[in-house]
Design a protein around this nucleic acid. Sequence first.
DNA 1: TTGTACGCGTTATCAT
DNA 2: ATGATAACGCGTACAA
Lengths: 339, 339
Amino acid sequence: MNNATLKQIAAQLGISTTTVSKALKNYTDISEKTKKAVIDLAQELNYTPNSFAVNLRTSESKTIGVIIPTVDFHFFSKVFKGVLEEAEKRDYLVIVLRSNEKLELEKKQIDLLLSKRVDGIIISLSNETGDFDHIKKVLAHNTSLVLFDKIAKLVNCSKVSINDRKASYEAVDYLIKKGRKKIAHFRGSYMPQNAIDRFLGYKKALEDNGIPYDSSLVYVCDNFSDFEDGYAAAKTACTEHPDLDAIFTVTDLVAVGVLKALQDLAISVPEQIAVFGFCNSFVSEITTPKLSTVDQPGFEIGRKAAEILFEEIQLKKKRQLIAYQSIELETSLLHRGSA
Amino acid sequence: MNNATLKQIAAQLGISTTTVSKALKNYTDISEKTKKAVIDLAQELNYTPNSFAVNLRTSESKTIGVIIPTVDFHFFSKVFKGVLEEAEKRDYLVIVLRSNEKLELEKKQIDLLLSKRVDGIIISLSNETGDFDHIKKVLAHNTSLVLFDKIAKLVNCSKVSINDRKASYEAVDYLIKKGRKKIAHFRGSYMPQNAIDRFLGYKKALEDNGIPYDSSLVYVCDNFSDFEDGYAAAKTACTEHPDLDAIFTVTDLVAVGVLKALQDLAISVPEQIAVFGFCNSFVSEITTPKLSTVDQPGFEIGRKAAEILFEEIQLKKKRQLIAYQSIELETSLLHRGSA
DNA sequence: TTGTACGCGTTATCAT
DNA sequence: ATGATAACGCGTACAA
């Protein structure tokens, strides 16, 4: 039941492998008769090209790699789904690797992908990633590269992300326009750029609305994909600031913890305290009240990143010039129950 | 910056490619001197073996494929994480494909993986999958195969799953022992075996405890990964059976919908109605009250499936006999707030 | 200790 | 319209 080769087909038909190869690929310079004979036999023998040989010959793997920080974070599932969608259209396969938010692992995974000679790589940088030599190595290897979500402005390649600062600004601005005056921000840790940007958007919105920035209203949730952090921070914040009337969190999961804490404290949402999340992860739909949040379009991000990657792979093949793109996808505010 | 080859190294050192190859692979019959020279130059030129050529030569891809029904379902993320864990240990890469619960797509993905000549495939069958020719084709291709979660008893290969029937039995038995008398079951659709098994476990637990089975207490949630279904079914059930005192659902997400509905109906959980879920997906930790549920060990399932797969790949390589395993991983009841 | 020669399966070039 | 030949890069049996 195994692996017919061009050679075998050729032998059985008493012709050359060249002819067989051409017949199978619909070259014009093969007679209909032999073409038919070849195709029939190929079908009968269940011939499929040996992709190892094809890869070697064409120097293409028809495979791309995706590196994400954590596998079981819903946002990345959405992104991945977008990537798959585009890959399927082109009969490309997708290898998935995780960096676990570790620079060292990220480096290793990149080396692995390069040594596998994937045609391109899509990556969201780990929180630890501060230098970019390993990223530049990808480009040096002439492998296409697209950064998404956690990008590095310093690297010369295409990027797909959202404008965290703007999105964050809009959310806080909205809270203020709705009459909230004392708005806490539960921010992410100091390292990743998006945590910083979201914080800056928060700050700017306050300032633009004439509300003085008060650093005691900012709480750091180090592991900001954990709702325990939000729970704890909410309890502290409510004690320290009894007149708090809104909380804007760096991520939905933190906001879910906040909702839980407020419920335990018998503080009504949104009447007493409004809560605004970030991400539109699917938990935001099942809380009580439902969570108002910034829609971060994961699926679209994945789709776009893959689309650009495949474009660049094609261009590279044709030795055409590549103009790197930096795409910022639109976010929007989702008004649900909590704010 | 590109792609040194054995040939180039050999040329630069004035030796043969054979010697270079051996030196790099630590063959014993190479002098320390040349070995060092080779290794140094290889490092300098940033040599990495061309895996296309290695693949062709060794007929191995050092890659496995995973096919799952849906990418953004948290249970599968956990499984995938387990698979990755094992793959990383062995420097294997993992290609991920989705079947979207469609038989046709599942077939296509399998063909793709086979044509890529992956060393093994791990798959959870789609809900539509009723015949198994495409699965048997994998074995016929001499490619290792492990089924998980949604398995097919008829296919002769290794399998990793849980005992849905037993797990379900235990949950319902627990509810009865706690004094619940009128227990509804929100089941999954009729096709996938696990929905059936969970239902059968429910039924058996009732019977063993002398509670007559009442089919009007069974509600079908077709799209049983959707909490809307649970919400709607709960409202109906509470109307039709005002004396209901427990609901056992096929999946956590359905249970989350149930909790929401009961909250809207001002029915207290677990006092009036106990709710028991299935899966231990992470939403079960953030509901109010927290959801009692069956722990379906996704990570372990993935780990085990991968472990078996890699074992079989190794055995096959050594042309040793393979004894297929059917593993049933232990589940346990997680007692949280809702029951 | 080192090198020669061949094959893995495909494809591209160039003759015929 | 067809085929001979070479090449992709590596690994290994065998010879030297």
